Simulated scan of single mutants.
Amino acid sequence: MLPYLIAASPSLLFGTFSLILGRWQGDDRQKVFGIFAGAFLTALVATPFLGAKWSPQIVIISFISGVSAFIGIRDQTRCLRVLGVSRTMPISTGLQLVAASLAGVVLMGEWRGAGAMPVGLVAIAMLVAGVWLTSRREKGAEGDQLDWRLGARLLATSTVGLVGFLVIVQYFGISGRDAMLPQAVGYGLAALVLTSPRIMRDGDGRDTRWSRATIPFMVAGVLWAIAILVLMITSSMVGVATGFTLAQLGVILSTLGGIWWLGEHRTRRELIWTLAGLALVVAGAFVVGYAKSLDV
């Protein structure tokens, strides 16, 4: 039981991560730069204890994976501002699970075990239905006034980035221990360059990254990096499918916290749709995990 409880702990960190971004004040540049500064420092401290082994291929592929993580977190962070935490996170989680599952089937030959494909297709259907329900809004309500066109674009690009972060290293058979620091160099360098005022245009054009407002978001980056590290370690204890599935449970905390702690408004109908969609996304995550387990 203890390994499973530990394997579920990243979900609390991921859920808290998104709530911090929604709660604390700062512009997008400060949030993104702070996240990756904190994550880079965490990787730097943790790596000497991981027994990592590197080759030129591992370093290059992991670096590319880290840049992909930057794109994913940057656009997810921006989407939190555009759509809110309680709308972004269940949709984002569902889309990531669908995209990661399809990538596993196409690129890595997953779901080839007896019964895995039908179960996996049921899981995808549940996830798609959950995403649709979560994104529904009542005409004329507050949610109907949000910039859904921009939100949809950010959800698409963040999904590609975050799924790429995981799938790229899996495709080349690189362990999380070996990938962690080169990934950190990738997203750290991307954050340093791509959050500059010349490229990431927010506010009045001043470089706001080097201020006190950035420090709290470094805490969020530490939480994200620790969650990735714990997920990497516990996956070897409970299995990759189970560990990945349990890590998605943070969507419950972020969605409900966004509504009741951050005060993101829902009409009565929208609340019912959101809760039903959230239940489908969580259930779909477990069915995805079950489909993966059938490959063993």
Rank of each mutant, 00 (worst) to 15 (best):
T208I: 12
F49T: 14
L262Q: 01
T93G: 00
R136G: 00
G38P: 14
L102P: 11
I233L: 15
S65D: 03
G120P: 03
G104T: 06
A179I: 13
V85R: 03
T242I: 07
G94F: 09
G161Y: 09
L133I: 06
A46K: 14
L107T: 06
I233T: 14
S86G: 04
I174F: 03
T234W: 14
I272Q: 12
I58A: 04
L166A: 10
G38K: 10
L253H: 00
L256E: 06
A7L: 07
D202C: 04
A114K: 02
G84H: 07
G66F: 10
R209G: 00
I124K: 02
G250H: 01
T42M: 14
R266L: 13
P182A: 08
L127F: 09
S175V: 09
S65E: 04
W24F: 15
L181H: 08
T88C: 12
I226L: 12
W273F: 15
G258C: 07
A103P: 02
A276K: 12
G15M: 07
G186W: 04
I272L: 07
Q76W: 08
T157P: 00
P118D: 08
L194T: 01
V122Q: 12
G84E: 06
A69Y: 13
Y171W: 07
L5F: 10
S158K: 01
G38C: 09
G140M: 08
A190S: 05
R266A: 05
V240Y: 04
P3Y: 03
I174K: 02
T77V: 13
L127T: 13
I259P: 01
F165A: 09
I215A: 10
P182T: 05
R136C: 09
A227V: 00
L41A: 15
D27K: 06
P3D: 06
E142I: 11
G239M: 08
Q57G: 04
L262N: 02
V67Q: 05
L41M: 15
S11L: 08
W261E: 04
V105L: 14
L262C: 03
A241I: 01
A184W: 10
M117T: 01
Q96I: 14
A227C: 03
W224H: 15
V222Q: 14
W210M: 12
V193N: 01
R212D: 01
W210K: 11
S135K: 10
A7Q: 11
R87T: 13
I6P: 00
I58D: 10
T245Y: 00
L5Y: 05
A291H: 06
V282G: 14
